[in-house]
Simulated assay, not measured.
Amino acid sequence: MTITVVTYPTLPDGLISPCWAWVIDDNQWRLGGHAQGSAKVTELPAVLDALRITANEGRALRIVLQDQLLAEHLADLRQQSGSRKTLGDPEHSLMEAIARETVGREVEFAWVGSTDSAATTSRPWLFVANSRQNEASEAVQASTDLRHEIVGLETSLLSAESRNDVERLEQMIHHDFYEIGRTGRYWERDDVIRVLNTIPDQIQGVAFDRVVELAPGVAHVRFRTEDALGTVHRSSIWMREGDHWQQRYHQGTPDTQAS
């Protein structure tokens, strides 16, 4: 039995996205991504993932790709031709991994061909793949929205306006909050609120570089601040409590290597 797998290097809305999808049927599909690179570098990880997930199927595998040239390269790979030499280093490394996964297996690579509306409606597996892509797009947007919200809250805590509003601070800081400050001192919620409410706005610069949702309703943010005393690397944990996000933990570590 032949299994048809479809890979997609871009999302239906045309936005540049790290998402891809491969689909066997409505019950067998996966989403993944690649941070950057050409369509080939985005599509090849999907091929590799599909091969690894179906390694124990014991059935012939037919992998259908969007990129015609890539499909031809992969078909040549099965014949041990020199086509791989025309690819760049990232593609070459992925091709080598794919070659190892195909050893001893019956695998065929093909080009999807025309994907106009008529062809899409006549191929259920294309419709399923498109629906998975839409889900991926929504997931990417949710992640972006979360980043904007958490960065906004963290920035607010750095401002004198929020620090002068005790009620606002009590809403933003979790009742079990604690902090390890830049001097190594431990701070609990009441002390932090009291100190924040009295010190002036001292931050001269801030740069955020990481916001990750650790679990539903739990987010980690990493950023760097600069003030008259130097640079501090900061890390916070935010938890959603009801309709609000609250800071549960914070740590500030001075950058002793900064010039």
Rank of each mutant, 00 (worst) to 15 (best):
residue 192 V to M: 09
residue 112 V to W: 03
residue 160 A to Q: 05
residue 238 W to E: 09
residue 203 I to V: 10
residue 23 V to R: 00
residue 28 Q to N: 07
residue 185 R to I: 12
residue 125 W to Q: 06
residue 129 A to N: 10
residue 141 Q to D: 05
residue 122 S to G: 11
residue 143 S to I: 14
residue 129 A to R: 11
residue 61 L to N: 02
residue 135 E to W: 11
residue 212 V to F: 04
residue 90 P to D: 15
residue 42 T to H: 15
residue 111 W to C: 14
residue 258 A to N: 04
residue 249 Y to N: 01
residue 92 H to A: 00
residue 30 R to H: 13
residue 71 A to T: 15
residue 229 L to D: 07
residue 174 H to C: 12
residue 16 I to M: 01
residue 200 P to I: 00
residue 131 S to G: 14
residue 92 H to G: 01
residue 161 E to Q: 02
residue 123 R to P: 06
residue 64 V to N: 12
residue 107 V to T: 11
residue 57 E to G: 08
residue 44 L to E: 14
residue 194 R to L: 04
residue 103 V to T: 07
residue 253 T to N: 08
residue 229 L to M: 08
residue 35 A to D: 13
residue 128 V to G: 05
residue 48 L to F: 03
residue 59 R to V: 01
residue 139 A to I: 14
residue 16 I to A: 04
residue 131 S to K: 12
residue 246 Q to H: 09
residue 104 G to C: 05
residue 111 W to R: 15
residue 207 A to S: 05
residue 233 H to F: 02
residue 7 T to N: 12
residue 212 V to L: 06
residue 92 H to I: 01
residue 219 A to Y: 11
residue 106 E to I: 11
residue 168 R to P: 00
residue 106 E to Y: 10
residue 188 E to K: 05
residue 67 D to N: 13
residue 91 E to M: 05
residue 9 P to Y: 14
residue 216 P to C: 09
residue 39 A to N: 15
residue 165 D to N: 03
residue 250 H to D: 04
residue 151 V to T: 02
residue 118 A to N: 15
residue 180 I to Q: 05
residue 7 T to P: 06
residue 162 S to Y: 02
